[in-house]
Nucleic acid binder design. Structure first.
Length: 576
RNA sequence: GCCCCCGUAGCUCAGCGGAUAGAGCGAGUGACUUCUAAUCACUUGGUCGCAGGUUCGAGUCCUGCCGGGGGCACCA
């Protein structure tokens, strides 16, 4: 049984052919196997041109030598050499059908488990306590969750952590405001945004209050019991809110995954002491700083990470160094992933350099800022939190579900419960998919219309295709069994089959670059290949053998779409 | 001023150094008594920001420029 992608197998064959015909050692990557978009060719090998240069022979001659030595009769039909030296590879129908038949019985649909699992600590979501989650939190939360799912499926040990903004100076004013409002009034923080804004307003306008807030910060940091209790109330209330959003979104984060700023607080003094001990710090403008090499401010002077502020307090830079130290040393993670917006790129670059200088991370340990573009308003400007016009996350999700419900409501053959469940899957899926289906590094213009669209490259389209596959199978009254005989007569059937075997490559590509959109693109193409097949190839009315074969294709399509969507954190309802 | 990211069809976006740059939306024409029309087929649409360079081959790599965005000392 072939594990993984066919492209890898083809590459191995080409490597062997190059060795035997040209006596050259090349890597599988150098075999340059690519899926081909040429009619009639499934894959192509682009190695001959480069090798021709290397051995000083015409590329077409090299291509002919490779083809002559290629041991691939079980896999591909006689390859054809085209243009300057492209080798067109077409899978035999025998191989393709056999492979499809085998995949039907395979839980992982051909995706291998990694042989070298890693321990991956991933920081994502990271909302602020006492602030309601808004659209700006979608990206980190949804992308992070998808990465967790994909990496776990890949076989890695994944440790998610939610870096809550639950500590620091704002909590002085928040706690004082809580005291003013009456500690027992359990509804006092029910609307977190209003609560925060009121506290802020009082802090700015009432010097008395501001002074109390400052004193409260000192109490908090010195561990005053009563203050900690109040603080805990704020955190708990916020967590209830976060969990509500996570539950709606189908995000797996729980309070167990909380590693907020308050958690790292206990490590800050040691972290800083260690930096001092290693001679990496210096005092600048009264602040204790680390100056990682290669970073400069606008005057051209070295740019610091301020590890202890001039007032003796610790800021986010100390905390982020403490996280790198904690996950790199204490938890021995092999990979540290931070799903945080692009604007913080320089900050993370500095933290990574400083952490390596401090010896907390070895060269074998990867640090990746899984950055993503900003959410922009319709005006193309940054969607600022303080603009007052932010869309609340819960409102957005509710709206998305309502819109989906309006369409599902027309279905009369479903129970109210089914309709609600479908509306939820479709609405939430639309929002998540909108965020996962484009290159995460690019900025994102917020638009209801785009986010809730149900046509084109959207979650709804995939869910719809899946529901149709299952509808056919349901109506057939049969269960498709592994090993069901498959034949590929029509072009639409073969196109679909070829698409279905490429899941492993798509998953790997998405994992390699932490780029979920590579998977969404593949799934969209798969759904598209299915709908073409659906239009052209009747299943239930076909002759028994064809019918069985097409049912098998439907079944495998459904498995691929369902698994793929699951890796993205999107539900695939059996009916729509 | 320095650094980072982006610039592909009217719009939103894919595109792994390979052949004639692809989808969706929009617009136009067809297709539901037939497995779900939340669909499909066909048509329309491009100086890949500009100029050099590397290469057998550049949307993709390098340099410079133009345009947009972001970051650049005690907020995160």
């Amino acid at each position: 049984m072939l594990q993984g992608d066919v492209g890898l197998e083809l590459a191995a064959r080409v490597v062997a052919a190059v060795k035997s015909s040209l006596d050259l050692d090349i890597t599988p990557a150098e075999a340059l196997i690519r899926p081909s978009n040429r009619p009639g060719a499934d894959y192509q090998c682009n190695a001959a041109m480069g090798l021709g240069k290397r051995v000083g022979r015409p590329p077409r001659e090299v291509a002919a030598a490779i083809v002559g030595a290629l041991d691939g009769t079980d896999l591909v039909v006689e390859p054809e050499i085209a243009g300057p030296g492209f080798i067109n590879l077409t899978l035999t129908d025998t191989w393709l059908t056999t492979h499809i038949e085998q995949l039907l019985g395979e839980e992982r649909l051909g995706v291998p488990v990694t042989e070298r699992p890693r321990r991956i600590a991933i920081d994502y979501s990271s909302p602020n306590v006492a602030k309601e989650m808004h659209v700006g939190h979608i990206r980190s939360t949804v992308i992070g969750d998808a990465l967790v799912r994909m990496l776990r499926f890949h076989g890695d040990e994944v440790i998610p952590h939610n870096h809550l903004g639950d500590w620091g100076t704002p909590f002085g004013m928040l706690i004082e405001h809580l005291v003013d409002e009456g500690v027992d009034a359990d509804h006092s923080v029910s609307d977190l945004n209003v609560f925060y804004q009121e506290a802020r307003k009082k802090f700015d306008s009432d010097p008395d209050f501001a002074e109390r807030a400052r004193l409260r910060v000192v109490k908090l940091q010195s561990g005053d019991e009563q203050t900690l209790e109040l603080w805990q109330q704020l955190v708990d209330e916020s967590m209830r809110h976060f969990m509500k959003a996570y539950k709606m979104l189908g995000i797996g984060l729980t309070p167990e995954d909380n590693y907020g700023e308050s958690f790292y607080n206990q490590y800050l003094a040691d972290t800083v002491a260690e930096l001092e001990q290693k001679g990496l710090t210096e005092i600048s403008d009264g602040a204790l700083c680390v100056f990682p090499k290669g970073f400069f401010n606008r005057e051209g002077d070295p740019l610091p990470l301020i590890v202890r502020k001039s007032d003796g307090g610790y800021g986010y830079m100390s905390t982020d160094l403490a996280t790198a130290r904690y996950w790199g040393v204490e938890r021995a993670a092999t990979d540290l992933l931070y799903v945080v917006g692009t604007p913080q790129a320089q900050h993370f670059a500095m933290v990574f350099v400083a952490s390596r200088d401090a010896g907390w991370l070895t060269p074998e340990q990867n640090t990746v800022h899984v950055n993503f573009g900003s959410i922009l308003g319709e005006d193309g400007k940054m969607f600022r939190t303080r603009s007052g016009d932010t869309v609340k996350l819960i409102d957005l999700l509710t709206e998305a579900i309502d819109r989906a419900a309006a369409v599902v409501g027309e279905r009369e053959d479903l129970t109210a419960e089914e309709r609600a469940s479908i509306a939820h899957a479709v609405g939430i899926g639309a929002v998540k998919y909108a965020d996962l289906s484009s290159d995460r590094e690019k900025d994102y213009v917020f638009s209801w219309e785009k986010m809730l669209a149900t046509d084109g490259n959207t979650a709804t389209y995939l869910q719809y295709a899946n529901a149709r596959t299952l509808s056919i199978i349901r109506k057939s009254g049969e269960t498709v069994r592994p090993g069901a005989k498959v034949t590929l007569a029509e072009k639409a059937e073969r196109d679909l089959a070829l698409q279905l075997i490429q899941l492993p490559a798509a998953v790997q590509a998405a994992i390699d670059g932490y780029t979920p959109h590579k998977l969404t693109t593949y799934l969209y193409e798969t759904a598209s290949a299915f709908t073409s097949f659906f239009e052209k190839c009747p299943v239930l009315k076909a002759e028994p053998e064809i019918r069985a074969s097409r049912l098998a294709l439907c079944a495998l399509t459904s498995k691929v779409l369902t698994l793929g969507l699951d890796l993205l954190g999107i539900k695939a309802p059996t009916r729509l």
